[in-house]
Amino acid sequence: MGLNVYLAGEIHTDWRDQIIQGAQGLDVTFSGPVTDHAASDDCGVEILGAEDQKFWHDRKGALVNGIRTRKDLHDADVVVVRFGDKYKQWNAAFDAGQAAALGKSMIILQPEEHDHALKEVNAAADAVARTPEQVVQILRYVLTDKLPG
């Protein structure tokens, strides 16, 4: 049994790399959003033409990025959603809501100080992890029946 895992959320730290590295040797295929912030923001206007208003600039980018996000969420067996410290993660909350609506297994990765703010998101999750290592341990357990240690 292999897993398709979508890594959603915060793009400013190396949590994705930590999970991918930790999962080496497991039958896991990872996908995720474009993590080049400038490319993600500007893809719509770079491809479809400039916009005078920031709202329409952002909308074009969101729509183009949404093609990838919808496909990857649909194909995922497990969705890992990272809520980071630096920015409000509206995109992460939206991805978590879509994953829940699709009935996907979901692991939330967040610091403890976000517990109250994310209580509804956490209630929809199968697990709430604090570290990328815990996410890897969950994936390893699901795929191999092996506990850490």
Rank of each mutant, 00 (worst) to 15 (best):
N4T: 10
V5W: 00
V5I: 06
L7K: 01
L7N: 01
A8V: 02
G9M: 02
G9P: 04
G9Y: 00
E10A: 05
H12Q: 12
T13W: 10
R16L: 02
D17H: 10
Q18M: 08
Q18F: 06
Q18I: 05
I20K: 06
Q21D: 15
Q21K: 15
G22M: 02
G22R: 00
A23F: 02
G25T: 04
G25H: 09
G25N: 07
L26E: 01
L26T: 01
L26F: 11
V28W: 00
T29F: 08
F30Q: 00
F30C: 02
F30E: 00
S31M: 12
S31I: 07
P33V: 05
P33D: 09
V34E: 09
T35C: 15
T35Q: 11
T35L: 14
D36E: 13
D36N: 15
H37E: 14
A38G: 11
S40R: 15
S40K: 14
S40E: 12
D41H: 09
D41I: 08
D42F: 14
D42G: 12
D42E: 13
C43E: 03
V45P: 08
I47K: 12
G49C: 09
G49P: 08
G49I: 08
A50L: 09
A50E: 10
E51S: 13
D52H: 10
D52K: 12
D52Y: 08
D52Q: 13
Q53T: 10
K54T: 12
F55K: 13
F55N: 07
W56N: 09
H57N: 05
D58W: 06
D58R: 06
R59L: 12
R59T: 09
K60G: 02
K60V: 02
K60H: 03
L63H: 10
L63P: 07
N65C: 11
R68C: 08
R70Q: 10
K71R: 12
L73D: 00
H74K: 10
H74Q: 11
A76F: 01
A76R: 01
V78D: 00
V79P: 14
V80W: 01
V81E: 01
D85E: 15
D85A: 11
D85M: 13
K86H: 14
K88P: 11
K88T: 13
A92H: 03
A92T: 03
F94L: 15
A96I: 05
A96S: 12
G97V: 04
A99Y: 02
A99T: 03
A99H: 01
A99M: 03
A100I: 06
A101L: 11
A101G: 10
G103H: 05
K104G: 04
S105E: 04
I107D: 00
I108Y: 01
L109E: 00
Q110P: 07
E112D: 14
E112N: 07
E113V: 08
H114F: 11
H114R: 14
D115T: 09
A117L: 13
L118I: 05
E120T: 11
V121N: 03
N122E: 06
A123I: 05
A123M: 08
A123S: 13
A123F: 09
A127F: 03
A127H: 01
V128R: 00
A129I: 04
T131C: 11
T131K: 05
E133W: 04
V135N: 02
V136Y: 01
Q137H: 14
Q137D: 15
I138Q: 02
I138N: 01
I138A: 04
R140E: 03
R140M: 03
L143D: 00
L143S: 02
T144D: 02
D145T: 08
L147N: 15
L147S: 15
P148N: 06
G149C: 10
